[in-house]
Design a protein around this nucleic acid. Structure first.
Lengths: 276, 276
DNA sequence: TATTCCGATAGTGAC
DNA sequence: GTCACTATCGGAATGAG
């Protein structure tokens, strides 16, 4: 199906020489049913190396496995460049949820708020994140266009056999994609989230899963570098964000601490959102 | 089987004329498998009358149903006298768990700490509670004697065909029975608990279930009337009792707030206790 | 200090 | 804020002819 965003085929475009022969799935790793079965590392099954930041006792997480051995994960790895590895989140918190992993060991254990103080690094990551968002939007379009009123004209043209080059534009999924990072220092490896806004996922199980993406705890990549006095650098502020009342990402309704109620509401909003 | 406590057959002894024709199960309501099936009132299924104490909004409980219509509950009602009704607790917190319900409407909505300030009332209830404890001990003996080392000589004599009148004494289950009330004003009808000390029951599900019987929240009937300054009259003291660390009734081991761990321990203690 | 159901909250262990 | 598992803790409903 032709897409209103059309970068899905761009998947291997930025791949570096050293990874070319091993890290490239056939065309698009979203076609995972055809990919060879591999076992992704458990989120906690990485090497037990400790953080290089001097904050002992925290796990670096398993994301480093994707960087060091992307060829081992053909189902998860969507793209490898000299600077980043793009993977599908193993526990997606929305219909589409990708992670962009900077590969530089000098960066990937840093707090994102500080890592992105470096404008050059930020610029590289930002470019590749936008590229990743195009891949994400293409996949979202593939999944949702048939339900979308905004894509109806395009859908009908496709059914009528109109050539791809002459299709009317469909829904602009790319503009809905969210790109950013979690604020608080965590045990995990530096990673940028690229995801659809719906929060419609079985993996959204805890209040932190929701509020870490739907409060100022989530920092859009466009907001970097943060001002020195940006309150989002404050741990106290961010802890409070995670405990905030739930607010529907779409309609703004407040749910207090009623997580189960929020979840039921998200089901309804997802159906409405699909149809727009 | 002959019992070292032998009041089981005394079940209907104190029955009043007005209840005689309706409230008497065949011999002993513990033989419940033979009793007609009836549906006991749910613990909260009483009439919607509110407490006479002026504390609106609390359930009065359904115990009054047993008093007003004991004949409707042949499986639960063990004995009816002019003063009390003895029933099996619908949610037994130990191997044997009976409730003795004073029948006087002028008393049964009172706080037990005050109701038992009346020596005459207390004396009547105490006598009938001791009688109830004999019934309870007889049933406990029936259930546990075969496991009991203290009853071994009696068990062997029974197997050898020794006449009941000449059997050696078995384990003194009556001395282990606990008789008393819960301290704090509750939504429920005045009732005296008669129970074995084991706390071995699927119905022990919450910390209050345990601590309400194994802290000073439980007041032995023998301790009444309480002195005017007895700390057990204090609501604050009793609230604290319910939140105390769990202490094994048998070995004294402390379990903090680890209820599940306590439960596992109680299983072990029950097996040991049975065999003593 | 009625029960039961549901659900929010907290601690842990993972290698 | 990694997940998954266990368990503790907390509120609300409950009946009724």
């Amino acid at each position: 199906m032709a897409e209103s965003v059309d970068d899905a085929g761009d998947f291997a475009g930025g791949e570096s020489a050293q990874d070319k022969q091993t890290a490239a799935p056939p065309r698009n790793a979203f076609t995972e049913l055809m990919a060879p079965k591999t076992k992704p590392p458990k989120p906690d099954a990485g090497k037990s190396s400790r953080s290089a930041t001097g904050k002992g006792g925290k796990w670096t997480g398993a994301l480093v496995e994707y960087i060091e051995h992307p060829e081992r994960f053909p189902r998860e790895v969507l793209r490898v460049t000299p600077n980043t590895v793009l993977i599908k989140d193993l526990y997606p918190k929305a219909t589409i949820h990708l992670l962009l992993l900077p590969r530089d060991p000098a960066r990937y254990l840093m707090n994102p708020r500080e890592a992105f103080d470096d404008g050059t690094f930020l610029s590289v990551v930002r470019d590749e994140a936008v590229s990743a968002a195009r891949i994400a939007a293409a996949e979202l379009s593939r999944q949702l266009s048939s339900f979308s009123a905004s894509s109806q004209a395009q859908n009908e043209a496709i059914d009528a056999g109109v050539l791809a080059a002459e299709l009317p534009p469909g829904r602009d999924f790319l503009s809905e994609m969210r790109i950013g990072v979690h604020a608080h220092p965590s045990m995990d490896h530096l990673h940028v989230h690229i995801f659809s806004p719906d929060m419609h996922s079985d993996k959204v199980k805890h209040y932190k899963h929701y509020n870490s993406f739907n409060t100022p705890f989530f920092i859009p990549l466009d907001d970097f570098p943060l001002a020195a006095d940006d309150e989002r650098r404050s741990t106290a502020f961010q802890n409070a964000n995670l405990k905030r009342d739930f607010v529907c990402w779409r309609c703004g309704k407040v749910f207090g601490n009623k997580f189960a109620e929020l979840k039921r509401h998200l089901e309804i909003e997802f159906e409405l959102w699909k149809k727009t």
